[in-house]
């Protein structure tokens, strides 16, 4: 992996970015994995990483962290090569795995203390502060803790060394709604201190609340990278329209891009999701006694669903 001819500008942009991937792949023998991923995430950005189970999210994260080697392409994290400088990279990254498993025969404190010792961090004040914020007893052995409390210890282990980049895979799984809010506030605080956050999550509300941009991965390939707002605007609209008078209403089911069509009001009121050109939709509706038209952006969850049901493209 170390003998690539450097692409012009790659090193410069890589060092300026928190994460810079160029054609990065890790493809398993069964053909699954992450394929030819190009991605730039700026320092101080909160990036949401979306995709269903098996889409390649965890594979990409594991490749970034040096747990598995790339089968193609290259990448830099915090300006460090993910293959050649993996150890230094891991010193500056905090990682929370999807299935966080710490040593259950140790207490929460001993687990985090071990990680800090390996990292050469002597100060334990941040550890104690995080335990207070997340309201967890670090003096108990992990095997005696609930799933939610184990998750809190894992979050502390990922944050305690004050990393420049946080890679979080389903961070709030097992946390109650109040603690999810506490976690989001903690992430905002970290971000305000200039930390970069790479957040993989299935909880769209969390992604919408925290992230500046999101990337959507499908079958191992990044199919969209955009701001949350732009993605919502671009990908799909929620449309409601009503027709007055006695003129025949248009056959909306036949209009390209219309889905989830619902009809009410004696067959003259329609609501549907729309993924086509608004210009052509308005032309289809015009001249039929249109009395009301509302177009709204859908929640991110719907955008995400559209990517997977209809097939999104960059």
């Amino acid at each position: 992996m170390g003998d690539f001819a450097p692409t012009e500008g790659y090193a410069e942009s890589g060092s300026a970015a928190a994460i810079a991937l160029e054609n990065l792949s890790h493809v398993y023998r069964n053909g699954r994995g992450a394929k030819n991923v190009d991605l730039r995430i700026g320092r101080g950005e909160v990036f949401g990483f979306l995709g269903p189970n098996g889409a390649g999210k965890t594979t990409l994260i594991r490749t970034l962290l040096g747990l598995i080697a790339p089968t193609g392409g290259r990448g830099q994290v915090l300006g460090l090569d993910i293959v050649g400088q993996s150890r230094e990279l891991r010193r500056r990254v905090g990682y929370l795995p999807g299935e966080a498993s710490l040593y259950d025969w140790l207490t929460g404190y001993q687990n985090v203390d071990f990680a800090l010792r390996v990292r050469g961090v002597a100060d334990r004040s941040r550890l104690k502060r995080l335990a207070g914020v997340l309201d967890v007893d670090l003096g108990r052995r992990l095997k005696t803790l609930s799933h939610g409390n184990r998750q809190k210890v894992a979050i502390i282990a990922a944050l305690a060394h004050d990393p420049d980049l946080l890679i979080l895979d389903e961070p709030t799984s097992g946390l109650d709604p109040l603690m999810q809010e506490t976690f989001q506030n903690l992430m905002r605080e970290e971000n305000s201190r200039g930390k970069t956050i790479f957040l993989s999550s299935h909880i769209m509300g969390e992604v919408e609340a925290l992230c500046d941009r999101v990337g959507v991965i499908r079958d191992g390939r990044m199919v969209a990278v955009d701001s949350v707002e732009h993605l919502r605007k671009q990908r799909m609209k929620y449309v409601t329209c009503e027709f007055a008078g006695s003129e025949p209403v248009p056959d909306l089911a036949a209009v390209a891009g219309v889905r989830d069509l619902q009809v009410s009001g004696q067959g003259r009121r329609f609501s549907f999701a729309f993924t086509g050109s608004l210009d052509s939709l308005v032309q289809s509706l015009a001249g039929r006694g249109l009395s009301d038209l509302t177009v709204t952006d859908p929640p991110l969850e719907e955008v995400f669903r559209a990517f997977y049901e209809q097939g999104g493209s960059r």
Binding site: G66, L67, R90, R91, Y95, P97, A100, S101, Y103
Partner: peptide, 14 residues
Amino acid sequence: DRHTADFLFTLPID
């Protein structure tokens, strides 16, 4: 096997 490898191997360990 216990999945503690993810915790261990993402620490800066040689």
